[in-house]
Design a protein around this nucleic acid. Structure first.
Lengths: 237, 237
DNA sequence: CCAGATTTGTTCGTATGTATC
DNA sequence: CGATACATACGAACAAATCTG
């Protein structure tokens, strides 16, 4: 395999990169079991412990799941457990807000200053721009402006642009960390209309950047949210 | 050491429990180096790998930090890096809001229904109640109501009640996860006065429960926050 | 600046326990 | 019950970072 040659990066991370590549390329499908630890270790020419460490790492990243006695399988990013990974809004019962999503105004253009800053793009890179409206029980509660680096999402059509997790999956992009800035503001005229609230009403602003597992920005979203009677749930360690 | 006897709990977790106990008891002081891996493994009668796993686990929990070539030392929960672990509000530059904190109205009482629910108390447990006001650049931006289980914090005086991290450290309580519910509401009359804003103004509500490393609720806080021009930063994986 | 000692980080190999089918 | 696969535990060796004399 010629791993661990000409590289100072730890071997278990090199193995993880190779394994993640297979998942991203669709060589290993979501929900399907992958070969067991021993076979993988043999194939990659590393020890069982090193392979185990790579797999543990990928489990932390939500790329795979491991079940004693059964095996290791590829996680489906669009499954119930991961679909709302980056949507932290819950209803009064603590359940995630699952509902319809509408996408409009999908267009391509050159990145402006703000997009370059938030998506770490340089100069003349292309971006996709679109709007989304999120519904819960058929009532709109969030209006979003979304920006995607065209480099990561070429040949975009208007199917399944609704959720970043599904979009990323279709384009072979594996998602890692996300950071969201929550603040208060006044609703924009356009958002006021879609949310059906008075002009200049106080609103929650959700400014979020989702990164790939390699740390590259994959989506910038600015949401205007009529939060009540729901709440945003933040976890800390 | 009679570890791993009469217990199905993994050995490395039993070791972690023992080590955490020493830190909680003050036997190992914050900022001080602890014995090296080999000596600890020998002392506890476990292999180097098992001790390493226990230490890795504790590093994830922010209990210790490890430096190649130097050693392993106990983290100070009140140090710069950890002081704002549960305070996710940043100023426009992304820096955490560090400022004065005032505590008032410290009293003890029996837990009411809401306190029982949020702090997982039963029946007749005692709680401490207090109010806090947080300042940034000498301007009040958050009014808090705080509830603590008296079981974890006996003999409370009014020194250093300002921050849960300092309070926990003084009482030998090690903190783990926290969960915060963020919502919008109208400011209460009392909070409106301390924050110097109009009655009934829209406000950010921060409802947070901090747990010990063993998962036991250690603090319930309900904050009313004049967020602008700052923002709340939520991280996701 | 260097050589050597110390400590954590990585990698290997092996054996045994536990969960699932 | 046996076969399979992941989980835990042990032991050993070398590499990389740090400090000291």
């Amino acid at each position: 395999m010629a791993l661990h040659s000409f590289s100072t990066r730890p071997l278990y991370l090199q193995v993880r990169d190779k394994l993640a590549e297979r998942i991203a390329a669709g060589q290993w499908k979501p929900g399907k079991f992958i070969p067991n630890e021993s076979d993988l270790a043999r194939e990659f020419g590393v020890s069982l412990g090193t392979m185990r460490r790579a797999l543990d790492f990928m489990q932390e990243e939500h790329l795979i799941a491991r079940r004693p006695g059964r095996g290791t399988f590829v996680n489906d990013p669009a499954s119930d457990g991961l679909l709302n990974r980056f949507s932290k809004i819950c209803d009064a019962d603590g359940k995630p807000l699952i509902g319809r999503v509408e996408t409009t105004n999908l267009i391509e253009g050159r990145a402006n200053k703000a997009e370059c800053l938030r998506l770490q793009l340089s100069g003349q890179d292309a971006v996709w721009r679109m709007c989304r409206t999120r519904f819960y029980k058929e009532q709109a509660f969030m209006h979003e402006e979304v920006f995607l680096p065209a480099k990561l999402f070429p040949n975009m059509d208007d199917r399944s642009t609704n959720r970043i997790v599904a979009l990323a999956q279709q384009h072979g992009v594996l998602l890692g960390e996300a950071h969201e800035r929550i603040s208060m503001g006044e609703v924009s005229p356009q958002a006021a209309e879609t949310l059906d609230i008075g002009k200049g009403s106080p609103i929650i602003l959700l400014d979020r950047v989702v990164h790939t597992i390699n740390g590259q920005p994959a989506e910038w979203r600015v949401g205007q949210c009529r939060l009540a009677p729901n709440y945003y749930l933040a976890d800390m360690r």
